[in-house]
Design a protein around this nucleic acid. Structure first.
Lengths: 240, 240
DNA sequence: TAGTGGTCTAGACCACAGA
DNA sequence: CTGTGGTCTAGACCACTAC
């Protein structure tokens, strides 16, 4: 929590997700926030704007600030594109697991090299994993990373969290990601590892993730079982 | 273009997409923008922040502001979740069309009523359309809207743009949308109207769209052919 | 050291909603 | 009318980068 507006934002977000403020409730006006935190209105507004961008809060001139949805959930695994804790994937119930199918060092193809901003035949990590919930597979993940950018990946790191390794151990900051989503027929690999029949499709998410410095560090293709995965997004329509 | 920061944002975005600034180019520093537009640094920064959030620009302390990717495109129909012009769907080449399969007034089911914030059995528009490019179908769209919120929908409005009708004719402002994406097997309806075989899947996008006032005005389910549609998203990782 | 962006302030004026 | 949020300013200090 380095900045004031982050502190205010986190406090409010916390109070919303923890139910102190329910959907429809009115939030403190900016002036109240200013008094409480000893800040100017610009700073309070900046915090509120972040909440608005995430779809947690709705504000209207002359009326005030109100909590929007505590969205209903169902039993699908869900990625919510909210920034509360980065990319929050909520496996709901069940214990998550991860099986490494292969983890090797390889030479980059032109295609991969382009996406990672490295040269063809530069070394890359080539990782294929199946993620499971209660032992049942739900996603097949092919990941490529350049050791020149992210050194020291081990099976142990993969078993835990690559993102935590990058941020905590390497001290790098993750910046942004570009994602593309498609539906596709399942292929032999999908069918084997996700336990699908040939008629059953997958949801593919292709992602290039960037460090804070703008350097791409990961290119991945995730293929999800069609029947237990959804991808949720909240998007504002107009400019700030 | 009501506000200064919108004007600055639009000017810069225009210069980027039109190629005056290429990927990697350095953009004017804030002080230069301040001089050019007669504004304060806060205002210039606000415009730049919008560009950063959309993934068009990358900034770094002590270095400056730089254009990021003018992304490569392929021949898939693509929805890009950038706010340049709301939700921009780019059918690339070909002339888009829209066939209305049915357009009727009905009574809301509990499910639909919940999503549109109306009461069960309140009247709703029930619209089923196929969108085409060069006569070839690519998406089957089931849309529900409440006449109490969006009155006066006609086939003529549907032939053009519902969103333009809402903003220009009704003078309402569109605020935000919540979207959920899944893969699914195609059903008989999909197969008929999208010309799919039973083995071929669809990409389903479920959307609730809200007015600027927070009132939901549209609930829709779009089922896209799997082989010519993708959904692209740029997302920042951390707080502002 | 000079130049950049990141944060923050203490005001100001406006537009809008409600009593 | 008051209270709300939306915009905007003219400065300030800091952290970082490059030289």
């Amino acid at each position: 929590m380095k900045t004031k507006y982050e502190k205010i934002y986190h406090d409010l977000a916390e109070e919303i997700v923890c139910g102190k403020y329910q959907a429809g409730d009115r939030l403190p006006e900016e002036v109240k926030i200013c008094e409480k935190y000893g800040c100017s209105r610009m700073t309070a507004k900046k915090a509120y704007d972040m909440l608005v961008r995430e779809g947690l809060v709705y504000r209207k001139k002359g009326m005030g600030s109100f909590v929007l949805s505590g969205r209903p959930d169902d039993d699908l695994i869900e990625i919510q594109e909210r920034k509360l804790s980065g990319f929050s994937s909520s496996p709901k119930k069940g214990t998550p697991g991860s099986n490494i199918i292969h983890f090797k060092l390889d030479f980059a193809s032109k295609f991969i090299a382009d996406r990672l901003g490295i040269k063809e035949k530069d070394p890359i990590y080539d990782i294929l994993r199946v993620r499971t919930v209660d032992g049942r597979p739900y996603v097949l993940e092919q990941t490529y990373m350049a050791p020149s950018v992210i050194p020291g990946i081990t099976e142990d790191v993969l078993k835990h969290s690559v993102y935590q390794y990058i941020e905590n151990t390497l001290g790098l900051k993750i910046g942004a990601a570009q994602k593309t989503t498609r539906a596709d027929k399942s292929d032999a690999l999908d069918q084997e590892y996700l336990n699908l029949s040939p008629r059953e499709p997958v949801l593919e998410i292709e992602q290039t993730a960037y460090l804070d410095s703008g350097i791409p560090f990961e290119y991945s293709i995730s293929r999800h079982r069609y029947d237990n995965f959804k991808f949720t997004l909240f998007s504002l329509h107009a400019g700030d």
